[in-house]
């Protein structure tokens, strides 16, 4: 790879394999994630997209028996190294989950919490406003910041979760099927938001929606799974390229079949 593009990398996964207990779930993944781009992870259910995504903020640490092999370079360090503090890492690599999960507290508190625990020194009101604006939610909630986050609609809740994630000023935001629980209009709003977010953050999104991947992402990684001898499934990366290439002229036949909706 040319060195000037390498300098713009944020995350670089090298030969990453993940085990759950004794079973290998995903094998030998290589992924370069360039700064200020959106990378989409697509593929059929169970092929390990979420598993790989959780490697980037060490959320797999929380699953008993989960083990990650290989290296993920982030800011000159291998974040798979147990000496890297996951608490510190997660401030810099935020995450938005599939199902909106605001805290059952006020909209204000939802955002203030992350800032407070991470020792934010500035003006809290200003941060809340900036984060909500960044998540395109400010106009809808500015008069009810004291109301519960759970009083919002699903799409608003998801944007609140995005606001909460960007309030601690991460470098990367991981999103695991962020729109799969939302209606088309909310989905559209979040997709527009992703375009904005890309200017300041690097995004890695998992999606089941091929149109979404082709609309929002710059690069697409296609994962697949094959049956193992034990009857389980083993996920692997089939192909990783620019989104345009993946959707128009992929190298692999399975990729073409999948992105055109012929299986999966």
């Amino acid at each position: 790879m040319v060195s000037n593009t390498a300098a713009k990398l944020t995350l670089k996964a090298e030969n990453v394999s993940v085990y759950y207990g004794p079973t290998l779930a995903v094998r030998e993944v290589y992924l370069d994630i360039p700064r200020n781009q959106i990378v989409a992870l697509v593929g059929p259910s169970g092929c390990g997209k979420s598993t790989i995504l959780r490697c980037f903020n060490r959320l797999n640490d929380l699953i008993p028996g989960a083990r990650v092999e290989g290296q993920i370079h982030f800011d000159g360090r291998d974040i798979c190294d147990p000496r890297v503090d996951p608490v510190e890492l997660r401030r810099r690599v935020g995450m938005v989950f599939q199902k909106p999960n605001p805290f059952p507290k006020s909209i204000y508190e939802n955002i203030a919490f992350g800032a407070r625990i991470n020792g934010y020194q500035g003006d809290m009101d200003e941060l809340i406003e900036r984060s909500l604006k960044g998540a395109a939610l400010w106009d809808e909630v500015k008069d009810k910041l004291k109301e519960s986050g759970l009083s919002l609609s699903g799409g608003q809740q998801q944007r609140l979760c995005i606001a909460r994630a960007i309030a601690i000023e991460p470098e990367v935001i991981l999103m695991d099927e962020p729109c799969s629980a939302l209606d088309p209009i909310s989905t559209h709003k979040i997709e527009e938001l992703m375009h904005d977010l890309k200017k300041r953050y690097t995004l890695v999104i998992v999606t089941h929606n091929m149109q979404q991947a082709s609309r929002v992402s710059d690069r697409t990684a296609f994962f697949n799974a094959k049956e193992t001898a034990q009857g389980g499934k083993l996920g692997y990366l089939v192909e990783y390229d620019s989104t345009q290439r993946i959707f128009s002229d992929p190298k692999e036949e399975t990729t073409r079949d999948y992105v055109s909706g012929r299986f999966g």
Binding site: N57, L62, V87, L89, F97, N101, P102, F103, I117
Partner: peptide
């Protein structure tokens, strides 16, 4: 999902338990 939300924001386990 509440625990994951807190931990993903860089909270320690105790902070998640105590606050949420």
């Amino acid at each position: 999902s509440i625990r994951l939300a807190g931990l993903a924001l860089g909270a320690t386990q105790w902070q998640v338990v105590w606050n949420h």
